[in-house]
Design a protein around this nucleic acid. Sequence first.
DNA 1: ATGGTTTTTACTGCGTC
DNA 2: GACGCGGTAAAAACCAT
Length: 329
Amino acid sequence: MTDSVRGYTAERSRARESEDETEGTNGDGERLRCPECEGQLTTDTEHGETVCADCGLVVEEDEIDHGPEWRAFDSKEKDQKSRVGAPTTQMMHDKGLSTNIGWQDKDAYGKTLSSRQREKMQRLRTWNERFRTRDSKERNLKQALGEIDRMASALGLPENVRETASVIYRRALSDDLLPGRSIEGVATSALYAAARQAGTPRSLDEIATVSRVEKDEIARTYRYVVRELGLEIQPADPEQYVPRFASELDLSDESERRARDLLKTAKEQGVHSGKSPVGLAAAAIYAAALLTNEKVTQSEVSEVANISEVTIRNRYHELLEAEEQIQVP
DNA sequence: ATGGTTTTTACTGCGTC
DNA sequence: GACGCGGTAAAAACCAT
């Protein structure tokens, strides 16, 4: 259940392996015999021909190579692409269709190149590779940053949060955290992390409503990113939610202040550990509104905080108890 | 995977407007 | 009768192991 991403990649690589196998059996030509001399047939993938090993008869030519087109690339690229899976894929910006220069140092007729030519080709490969990957990373980044911007404004997050989110995303990108994960997922996680770091947290649910990615995946990717980048993010402080909820409910500054006080005393009493910060904030808001005689119903609070009324009830009892214990010891 | 904890869901009863 | 509130039991979600 928590492993849908892993399951996904595993399936992809399995599909790739089976593809390799069929390619292999195609190539060995064991069951096929030469019609002239009954000799073994071998497949020459270089020229796209099937030839009899004994008499040299060309049985078939201009064959289409059904193998994945990236097999002949350099080994670094093979690694990269293998992880992604199928030869053409939506997961690469160019669907794997961009021009590449083979590594065999042979010309179109299969002849070996002169050393001068080899050097030249090597330089071309280097530059082609540089442009291609730089290009792909930049598109990737562009899309992700656009996404971050969109979500941030939907959530009313300030500029500095977007900045941090972009920084986190760039770090994830340069640390090669992207392969196997969606751009959107990582972008969303970066934003979630940034919002928390900036002290203006949004709950996972809120994030999930503006993201194109499922909550589960966000949570998973977020954990992964935080771990890999060594980000230090403390659990969200309930007080950080207070101003937002208070203003959404049109509460006075007075009750907002009392809500904070309630949370402070609760913290001193240690009542808050293990409970959801959002729930505590919501309960504090509700309790404070009661104390200041401002009319807010539990359901209204539960609405803006996305928390159940039951949780509000439970929490706010605890908050009031903690308050009493401080005053009458 | 499992077990313990927290949150949610669904339902009920009570008082008030 | 609808609404706000409180409580409860069972289910679901979450978390650490």
